[in-house]
């Protein structure tokens, strides 16, 4: 039955509301249309997209009643496919696309190193905890540590401002860090941002 009906008859049936007629038409010509597209683009996914767009156009034109090439259904479909292939290549030459291959992936070179929201929250939390811990240190150690770590001052500058020798400032810094470690260990505080 399928083979007996010509394309023009199927188109007529489809226009009168028989959706099965379209199924027969698509199944009858899908291989030829798809192979034609694939022979031009050499990419299965692109061929699939163009094939789909071709038949969407076919369906729209038929439903709008704008089809008037009776008896030449396949050449008409092929022409639509051909035009869409040209559109595809035009679009790609205007906007060349860089596609990564297995050997080289662009994202291995370009990456976003900024922390995500979760990491940013953890980082803020850790920094806040460290600030509180510093508050637990003796005043002289606290002073040296803040100047060195937060104000980025040299030990020479610190010694000048606090009025102690460089060695004393160095010693206070050392004890400040040792004491911070002790507090962290004693209280099982976890300061990590992995």
């Amino acid at each position: 039955m399928e083979q007996l009906l010509q394309d023009s008859a199927l188109v007529e049936k489809y226009l009168s509301g028989d959706e099965n007629a379209l199924e027969i038409l698509i199944n009858r010509h899908s291989q030829r249309v798809y192979s034609f597209i694939f022979s031009k683009v050499f990419d299965k996914d692109i061929a699939e997209d163009i094939f789909q767009d071709t038949f969407i156009k076919v369906i729209k034109t038929l439903k709008k009643g704008a089809y008037n090439e009776e008896g030449k259904f396949l050449p008409w479909v092929m022409r639509i496919a051909h035009n869409l292939i040209i559109d595809h290549f035009r679009k790609n030459t205007r906007m060349p696309k860089f596609e990564g291959s297995d050997d080289f992936n662009i994202f291995s070179v370009i990456s976003d190193n900024s922390p995500n929201v979760e990491k940013q929250i953890i980082k803020d939390q850790v920094e806040d905890d460290v600030r509180k811990l510093i508050g637990e240190l003796p005043k002289d150690q606290q002073e040296v540590l803040v100047m060195r770590m937060y104000k980025d001052m040299s030990f020479k500058e610190i010694s000048e401002i606090t009025g102690v020798s460089i060695n004393t400032a160095l010693g206070r810094m050392r004890y400040a860090i040792i004491n911070l470690r002790k507090i962290v260990e004693k209280n099982n505080i976890v300061l990590t941002n992995q």
Binding site: E23, I26, S30, Q31, S35, E48
Partner: peptide
């Protein structure tokens, strides 16, 4: 035989 995926045809229908 190369042809469209059945899903594509089904989508069109």
């Amino acid at each position: 035989k190369i042809g469209p995926r059945p899903e594509t045809v089904s989508f069109l229908l």
